[in-house]
Design a protein around this nucleic acid. Structure first.
Lengths: 190, 190
DNA sequence: CGGAATCTTGAAAGTGTTCAAATCAAGTGG
DNA sequence: CCACTTGATTTGAACACTTTCAAGATTCCG
């Protein structure tokens, strides 16, 4: 099995014996995927929670104007899923796609409860991860309201200058909720 | 102790013996608070996770124009906290205030780990609650991008007609991220 | 009743979008 | 390695949505 980042990330938050790790391996499904491959498409049920070992994923949906609207990016050491679809096992409105060649590790929804029963530490680990993700979402709502789109753009590039180099402009525009044309204008201005 | 809603909510998601409940009680801090009382103010560390037994809370911050910007409401059976401040025990940028007389139950941050060690089911319960809250936050990002403010207003009043009756217009405007003046205009139009 | 908070109205200004077209960059097959 | 085709970015003008400001009307609460 080849998911060193996941194991060390788990061990940062909960104790895991070597035996636990061996047991865990029987529940993990690692995969290498190519740029533009999909892990989830609209209409499908989100069947797993995905950990990014290496590479970059995006989550997006098709908005009412027929355009791709990106809602999340996931880099190394992040979990990504449509948690509404995953929790309720109902069809998703989202797509999850690799924007670089990537190595991911999946925990399947139908095995998750059994895994958590055998390794209760994982219940704690994911409680911490979900609380962290929700905390970030709360802050995101704040920034979204508090700053104009121009300010949000400047904030984003100052916080994640390296990441901005990894993705095309139109994806950044989509994530920030503005048009590629307007982003282009903002870049020109400063 | 008087928190029937909390106990039945817990039992919907995890098993809890009567002994567990008795133990739990020693960690819960129930409180009655009056309309306009604060559970958290900007600059304070968020010291507890709050469950609403009865009544209604709001969470807001003071934006860069000096106005109150509401980010969350919490009704019966919802948990509310600034999870960034709660997790990291750092000063909050938010206020939490009752907008009706309310009965709440608090779990203090400094007792939470000890409580979860004694009742590991709670780790699972809060993993489910946080995952649910994060799932809702993901959908909220989608609605926020997908609909104009006018459409978001119409969607909100169609989804929560009873709740709209419980709060003043200016709070709804604040939550939806539009001015009271514009909301007034939308109401007039239909 | 009186004062404060809330809600409405209308005009002017700003922010961001749309549309159409031109330019630039990149991947592919020959 | 070039030529071609497609995808990505830029430009500018017209337009749409939402805010701001100032004032007046209304409602709530002690």
């Amino acid at each position: 099995m080849n998911c060193p980042n996941l194991i060390s990330h788990l061990r940062k938050h909960v104790p895991l014996s070597d035996g636990d790790v061996a047991l865990l391996y029987t529940y993990l499904r690692p995969a290498s995927i190519k740029k533009k491959d999909f892990l989830l498409k609209e209409g499908q049920v989100c069947k797993a929670n995905y950990f990014v070992e290496k590479g970059c994923l995006r989550m997006f949906y098709i908005n009412n104007k027929g355009m791709e609207q990106i809602t999340h990016f996931a880099l190394e050491n992040w979990w990504l899923a449509d948690y509404m679809s995953l929790s309720l096992q109902q069809p998703s409105q989202f797509f999850i796609q690799a924007i670089e060649d990537a190595t991911i590790v999946a925990i399947e929804a139908h095995q998750q409860d059994e895994l958590f029963r055998k390794l209760p530490q994982l219940e704690r680990y994911f409680r911490i991860m979900m609380q962290r993700a929700y905390a970030a979402a709360q802050m995101r709502v704040k920034y979204h309201h508090d700053y104009s789109k121009e300010e949000n753009y400047k904030l984003f590039i100052s916080l994640f200058p390296a990441f901005v180099q990894r993705i095309p402009q139109y994806m950044l525009a989509s994530y920030l909720g503005l048009t590629p044309e307007y982003l282009s204008e903002l870049r020109r201005k400063g």
